[in-house]
Design a protein around this nucleic acid. Sequence first.
DNA 1: CGAAGACGGTAACGAAGTTCTCGCCCTCGG
DNA 2: CCGAGGGCGAGAACTTCGTTACCGTCTTCG
Lengths: 240, 240
Amino acid sequence: MAKNESVKSAGAGGDEASDGAVSWREQAVARSLDSARTRAENRVQRFLDAALELMNDGDTSDFTVQEVVERSGQSLRSFYQYFGGKHELLLALFEESIRAGVEEVAEKIAQEPDETARLRRFVIDYYLRCRPGPKSKRRGTTTHDPVIIEFAQQLLTEHPAEASRAFAPLVDLFEEVLNDAAEAGAIRSGLATRSVAGTVLEVVMFNAFSSTIGGMPIKQDATDAAEELWDLLLNGLVAR
Amino acid sequence: MAKNESVKSAGAGGDEASDGAVSWREQAVARSLDSARTRAENRVQRFLDAALELMNDGDTSDFTVQEVVERSGQSLRSFYQYFGGKHELLLALFEESIRAGVEEVAEKIAQEPDETARLRRFVIDYYLRCRPGPKSKRRGTTTHDPVIIEFAQQLLTEHPAEASRAFAPLVDLFEEVLNDAAEAGAIRSGLATRSVAGTVLEVVMFNAFSSTIGGMPIKQDATDAAEELWDLLLNGLVAR
DNA sequence: CGAAGACGGTAACGAAGTTCTCGCCCTCGG
DNA sequence: CCGAGGGCGAGAACTTCGTTACCGTCTTCG
């Protein structure tokens, strides 16, 4: 019962030769890129990967610290050596999720022709990203895990400082898009873009997360809902 | 250790003669209006009151079932006889909170001169109501307790059906206001008011609850934030 | 009067996060 | 080469909280 674990190297699901002869290879790799910093990073990454797998696999999309520990083939001891608690693990996952989201959305909007289209694209794409996938994952679009968004809500109310720090990259990008749109005359120019960016993102994120309060029967396709929200955000309630 | 509890009758913090001579009076009252239905209602109400007190008193604004039981001077046994679990207690508090909110907002908007003013009044008032009071309660406006709103979020994602049922009175009222405004030409007439009502209320509620994502320094007064959001909702982002 | 049900008091259970103890092994400095 | 210390695995233990179970009492109703 000493060395049954297979390292499952960081980024992708690496599948190495089955069980028996792993130790030497692993050891070698470890020794080569181990300046004790990278080793730590490797361990941290294994916890993160395990958590991600648990969120994607299980029907529950929720996980306990124990499960993460088992799945990662490490120990509770180590977990609390690298993370201050479950809270920090969630925070790390959240930040990573934001980073990935920013990257993906940035690519998407880059393909749009003008400022208005980019703005619209941002809102709709991010809406879809925050929408919990009811069945098998929507193809073509990565989505935030529900657990992550739930955590975001909690973080926002309990540790606003940490929260806005984690959200910063996303808000930065959106603020930029807003500024461009304002300069191009696509949206009005009076508004405080930073503040509006935060507000709009919150609206998109949480409205996508928990479908609206009014008891919609089965509600239309997510895309329609996204369009509806976009229309409301762009044009407001007022009569033209 | 048999009869130290003082009943603390339902509505207000009733302070009766200290400890010794309570039983008889209490008994009398109980016997008088006890058809076993009212007695149950009385007990339920005592739990609800206890929970409300705990939310308003403590610095935590959070409570455990134990605390509610102790505070209400009843027993765990009874608690689980009347409530299926903490969940149901929260739900009851939530529904009551919504009811009270609807009542209060209805009064407020009735005083406004025209449809647009009523709409605006609704949004701003409800925003303030959902804004957690950072220090001593804001005078003049009752507010939803943070715990309640947090529960609302959770309910919305875990039991959408129950959630929209609980929210219904509020959505009904707002939908009505929206319809009136649309009829009067104050807002555009094309939109699905039920759906929009839900969306807007969600926006107002959750944006007020957890101040915006963008790392606002100390942020202005709640009223200013409410105005900002109202402006965004009414006019949208678009240039006129 | 006697049985049934409501109720209080308290212990106990189970899940989950967190901490602690023990012991192994590897590494590093003398 | 050897001894100390730190990283680490394996659990046990502790804590909080919701929930359930058990026991004894009191009221009530047939």
